[in-house]
Design a protein around this nucleic acid. Structure first.
Length: 899
RNA sequence: GGAUCCUUAGCUCAGUUGGCUAGAGCGUACGAUUCACAUUCGUAAGGUCACAGGUUCAAGCCCUGUAGGAUCCACCA
């Protein structure tokens, strides 16, 4: 006996995985086809793994990803397709850099002690040391991916492809070097793309600051030449909301509203709305910038909202995105006043230089107050950008960076999306994506961190930039001219956007049946960051969309629907669950109750249910193997059906199979698991196996079990393969078996079995009611009688076994006992009159009890005070209850009359 | 400010072009017990499908609005 009495996943999983891998089953087409040209008729199926961090551990989201992707992979493999699931490992540029830098700091060092090349080499070693866990964990989850094709995001072929694309873009004029405001983290000292920034609503303050107006003396053009005709320094008190209209006699001031007073050193203008009557006659004049001796112009710009604050806004093009644009429109200078490490620069004056922005803000406010220029402060809630790793406030900074001009890329992507070339699950994400692409701004791809793919651009002293892929050299010489390497690296999304291209080894002009991918499966949270960019880049590089379908999964939340986080302490480790319940249980558990694109809760309970199903199937198999072993002669496989239960299970298996085929096509994994659960447990084990305890049709038992193992394999690969290997009559490996064919059956016979199930169920429920009603009633001593009923007559033994009565016999003459309420069947339980009486009495008691409840409810409704004064909800509830109770009484009465 | 999604049993969720006597897992109650499985078997209870209107022979599903929750995008000084 190979089958232990329960399935112990830990005893099988590692060996089975090793066996698949050794047999090269994960290669496309498996061992049979590998290395040979595929048959033309054979269809191909390709899917790539979103690369987990090479030196990290898997989290619950990876668990879901692999459960889905491997189910797809195994399903298509069983369907006979050349299936290629390509695994990946991510250098995780910024993520890993943050981890490494923290380690470096712990050792008392900083990144600034080393050159970029040194740092790169150090992180490389660091990653190699930490590497390995992730891949072991992916294996433990059962992913049938082709390890020989593992792609690391820093692999040579990836870098080569990324450089080729960059060069093409450079030649096409689609990348440019530009000085713009970029999102900058002063802690990590690198820029980010817009999408990498986290906006949070925060409480802040809006300060009103008075800027003194000076009269313009001449029409000097340069900003320094705005001359001053000093007005009286007597300040004018009053609320900022009051009018600041200029009259020739009065000293003038313009009160601006700002949340960032420390940036005033970088102000180059004050803007008011051209339609704002309050300030109309100030436009073109100048104000004196507080705490400095600079004078700046008052300009008219739509950006100033008359409704907000005082309606006058200071313009700081070097440190604010809006102001940057205003500055462009009015051709204003940009004055950087905050350094890249977050401190105030020398141009803020000796009192402020060197302070952090926070310190500077304090001092500026204090000084303004002392000078009587602070006119008010108001609490407001506004959205503030933060670094998604360290939470530092993102500083918009003026910086020269490489930008991708995305307009063309986005336009092409939108055209292909609108043409329906990519099918989305859930479908609404297509429009969400189109919407995003329509508003996409140029993409900053430079990062000031050493861990990543070096940008292949070199600059001469005269400012000329050239492309060259020799990024291992800090300096190159071409035609006697020396060029220095740009020290920045690419945004990881720039290289990741090539993922389908690099994983499938796409090459220009070569036939590649695996590109485009059949499906891209990933998290809905990176639709914009990744999916959008893969589509744009795929189209740019290959002219084709990179995948024909996109399946997006949502976040896995904890059992109460809360986001998992270390600080909340509600993080579930997938590997712990795998260790405790087995990989299959985890996979089925996490797919349960989950649909595309939605953030949904997850709990251990569903994994327990999965574990139980594995054990159930194990024991079904064990039982069938026992029957096979007990047979005298070897029985061949057969489709032959001999009794209604057999026709019925054949019908049910066919229907389940068709359901699964449609569910897989539509990415309805949860429903597919439900279908299998119900087929295996509620149908196969609870009814079919029970009938086979009598009939023992070994041929059909073998055949049906094999079909079920194949159908469950995509979701529970280990237990199904373990069973397959343990069964005496199966051959080869289940992983490369053939999807089952339809079973033949007699539909009338199958229908008859369903009727028989009705008889059995009603009998069971009546027996239960009798047990509760009459002390000493025993179903094991009760005889079941039947009248003129050929179906029951043909299946006496079966009905007896399934109901647990003493015997089932034809009733001669007048039937006696209790008639069972089954339509179209004359069946009785031969019980004594006093048992019937007790049963009738039980029904009667119930009728009376419900009657009493009904009376009291009616009494309540007849009380006019109650109806008038009680809350309407309560009154309605009472009305509903009355209707319900009346219906219940009717039902019970009918049942009692039938006795 | 814009967008998307969600609200169905005690909990977590299904419910695909409207046809429903609204399902599952877990949980609850009652009963069973050596012969595949206590990771078992049987039975039962439990739902104004968020709310208010509308379309239809028919609405959990379609339309309009309201309330609550989640997520994403956006430059509000």
């Amino acid at each position: 006996m190979k089958f232990a009495s329960s399935y112990e996943p830990n005893e099988y999983e590692a060996d089975i995985y090793a066996c698949w891998e050794a047999a090269d089953e994960f290669l496309p087409g498996g061992r049979v086809f590998h290395g040979q040209p595929s048959e033309k008729t054979q269809s191909h199926y390709s899917i790539v793994m979103p690369p987990p961090n090479a030196n990290g551990n898997l989290h619950i989201g990876h668990g879901l990803t692999i459960a889905i992707e491997d189910a797809l992979t195994r399903y298509h493999r069983l369907r006979g397709e050349m299936t290629w699931y390509i695994p990946g490992a991510d250098h995780a540029g910024f993520e890993t850099w943050v981890v490494y830098e923290r380690a470096l700091e712990k050792q008392g060092h900083t990144r600034f002690e080393y050159s970029r090349d040194e740092l790169y080499a150090r992180v490389w070693d660091f990653v190699q040391e930490q590497r390995g866990n992730m891949e072991l964990q992916v294996r433990a989850l059962g992913a049938s991916c082709s390890w020989k094709d593992l792609t690391f995001t820093l692999d040579e072929n990836v870098v080569r492809r990324v450089y080729a694309t960059f060069e093409k873009m450079w030649n096409d004029g689609m990348v440019y070097r530009g000085e713009k405001l970029v999102n900058y983290c002063t802690k990590h000292q690198t820029a980010f793309a817009d999408i990498e920034v986290e906006h949070k609503d925060e409480k802040g303050k809006l300060w009103d600051i008075a800027y003194k107006v000076v009269q313009e003396q001449s029409s000097a053009s340069s900003e320094d030449a705005l001359l001053t005709q000093r007005t009286s320094s007597t300040s004018r008190s009053g609320a900022p909301s009051s009018s600041h209209l200029a009259t020739p006699e009065q000293p003038l001031e313009l009160v601006v509203s700002t949340t960032r007073p420390e940036t005033l050193f970088g102000d180059v203008a004050v803007a008011v709305n051209p339609e704002d009557k309050r300030y109309k006659n100030l436009i073109g004049k100048a104000v004196r910038l507080p705490l400095t001796d600079r004078e700046i112009p008052i300009i008219a710009d739509e950006h100033a909202d008359p409704e907000y604050g005082t309606g006058a806004v200071k313009i700081t093009p070097a440190h604010d995105n809006d102001d940057f644009e205003v500055g462009e429109r009015h051709n204003l200078p940009r004055i950087q006043v905050i350094s890249f490490d977050g401190k105030m620069l020398d141009n803020c004056g000796p009192e402020y230089a060197g302070l952090t922005t926070a310190e500077c803000r304090k001092k500026v406010l204090k000084d303004l107050k002392e000078q009587g220029l602070l006119r008010g402060e108001k609490e407001i809630v506004h959205s503030v950008a933060h670094c998604y790793k360290c939470d530092t406030v993102i500083e918009p900074m003026l910086k020269e960076q490489w930008f991708v001009d995305v307009k063309k890329l986005a336009k092409v992507a939108i055209e292909h999306l609108e043409a329906g070339e990519i099918k989305f699950f859930p479908a609404n994400k297509k429009n969400v994506l189109i919407n995003y692409l329509k508003g996409l701004k140029d993409w900053n791809i430079s990062r000031q961190i050493p861990w990543g793919i070096a940008i292949p651009m070199f600059r001469a002293d005269d400012g000329e930039w050239i492309f060259d892929s020799r990024t291992n050299l800090a300096e190159i010489e071409i035609g006697g001219k020396r060029y220095k390497r740009d020290e920045d690296t690419f945004d990881t999304w720039f290289s990741s956007s090539h993922w389908p291209i690099v994983c499938t080894d796409w090459e220009e002009g070569a036939v590649n049946p695996y590109y485009p991918l059949n499906v891209m499966e990933t998290g809905a949270d990176i639709l914009f960051a990744w999916v959008a960019r893969m589509i744009m880049m795929g189209l740019y590089v290959t002219g084709e969309v990179p995948f024909s379908e996109v399946y997006l999964h949502g976040l896995v939340l904890d059992a109460h629907g809360q986001k998992m986080s270390k600080s909340k302490g509600n993080v579930i480790n997938p590997m712990e669950l795998v260790g405790k319940y087995g990989s299959d249980a985890f996979r089925m558990g996490i797919l349960r109750g989950r649909s595309a694109g939605m953030n949904q809760a997850f709990s251990e309970q569903s994994v327990v249910a999965g574990r139980n199903l594995c054990n159930k199937l194990w024991n079904v198999s064990r039982f069938i193997q026992e029957i096979v072993d007990s047979e005298q002669s070897e029985q061949s496989l057969s489709h032959e059906t001999l009794n209604p239960g057999e026709d019925w299970i054949c019908r049910e298996i066919n229907e389940a199979k068709w359901a699964i085929e449609s569910q897989m096509k539509n990415y309805r994994f949860s429903e597919a698991v439900e279908t299998l659960y119900s087929l295996i447990w509620d149908k196969y084990a609870d009814w079919f196996i029970e009938t086979e305890k009598i009939y023992r049709n070994t041929g059909l038992l073998k055949e049906t079990l094999m079909a079920i193992l194949k159908m469950l394999h995509p979701f529970a690969p280990f237990v199904t393969e373990a069973i397959w290997q343990n069964l005496s009559w199966t051959e080869g490996l289940l992983i490369s078996a053939k999807w089952p064919a339809d079973f033949k059956f007699d539909p009338i016979s199958a229908e008859n079995f369903e009727k028989l199930m009705g008889v059995v169920s009603t009998t069971r429920s009546t027996l239960q009611a009798l047990t509760e009603a009459h002390k000493g009633f025993s179903k094991a001593e009760t005889v079941m009688l039947y009248g003129d009923d050929s179906l029951v007559d043909d299946n006496q033994v079966l009905v007896q076994k399934l109901t647990g009565v003493a015997s089932v016999i034809s009733c001669e003459g007048q039937p006696r006992g209790l008639r069972l309420p089954v339509a179209n069947h004359e069946v009785y339980l031969d019980v004594d009159a006093d048992v019937v009486a007790d049963y009738a009495q039980a029904l009667e008691n119930k009728i009376l009890a419900v009657g009493r409840e009904l009376d009291s409810l009616n009494m309540r409704m007849m009380n006019p005070n109650y109806v008038d004064k009680a809350p309407a909800e309560l009154v309605n509830e009472t009305r509903t209850l009355i209707v319900e109770k009346e219906e219940l009484i009717e039902r019970l009465k009918k049942e009692r009359e039938a006795i």
